[in-house]
Design a protein around this nucleic acid. Sequence first.
DNA 1: CCGCCTAAGATACCGCTGTA
DNA 2: TACAGCGGTATCTTAGGCGG
Length: 296
Amino acid sequence: MVTDRDILILRAVSRYYVLNRHQIQRLIFPEDIHGRVTRRRLQSLIDADLLNRQPMLVCHPQNGVPAPVYYPSPKGIELLAEFTGDDRFLATATQAPTMHHVWHWLAVSETHIAFDQAISLQTADSPYAVRVVEWLNEYDVVNPAETLPEKRFHLYTLLRSSPRLICAPDAALLLNARGHSKVFYLEEDRATTGVHQIAASKSQGYAVLAEVSGHRRHFPQATIDTFTVLMIAPTARRRDALRKAFREKQGAALWRFASVEDLKPERLLFEPIWYPCDGEPASLIKPNPLSEGESS
DNA sequence: CCGCCTAAGATACCGCTGTA
DNA sequence: TACAGCGGTATCTTAGGCGG
């Protein structure tokens, strides 16, 4: 039997792709103190093939056993499309998240949730009426028949064949405020690689993407001609190390850096938590009405 | 309309497990 | 050993079917 809250779970994994039990509980079962209800509903969805589970083998949250993560199943998104009458759910990625990338996916979904909550915190008379027009995840498929990543995935961009240069954002969003739409790319940093290696491997792709206005292909409806890359670092110290590493790189002006502890829904849009490579932090949405929707 | 029964979800409690 | 998460189970609640 599928309950209303089961549908909410299917919607959530369709939207965020990879979620753990704790996140689902926070989003859909806030009253569930013991987590038993959440686990039971998840189990019944899995038994019905409406949801997929990926065990997390390498895991140390604080302590305790590894907690699995959940992601969409073909049958689940079919049910969702049928239930809502919206066939766009059928485009949801249902491939299993790579085992060693699971923490990365959870970080992306956590950022996505923070954006959604920041948007919904605005009241009806909010001055900027900010909204996310569209959010693309790394593995959102544009052409299911293709196997080449640059043709299969919406975001993966092959900029040059030889030497090979690609740009593969973790996610992308089109943010709208008072009629202006701007493209933002998302890069989640998990401090697993040295900052200089990250700066070297990522800066050129985005710099060339900007030169060729590649963001126009991802979001033709954008009205602002530039884009910004948002990098989320696990700590403020790491954030500042990244800023320093990107400072001398090509296209450094495209980047803004924030730390996870600053990335609260109530601060995300309007408070100066976004640091450029050089200089003072600014808010994502500028207070000046003439340049709202921009961050640079 | 009533009383009874059943099915399924919600709730509470508990023991097990693997890691720091 | 402490702890967080998992899954088993008993009990409560609610909705619906059914005969009288």
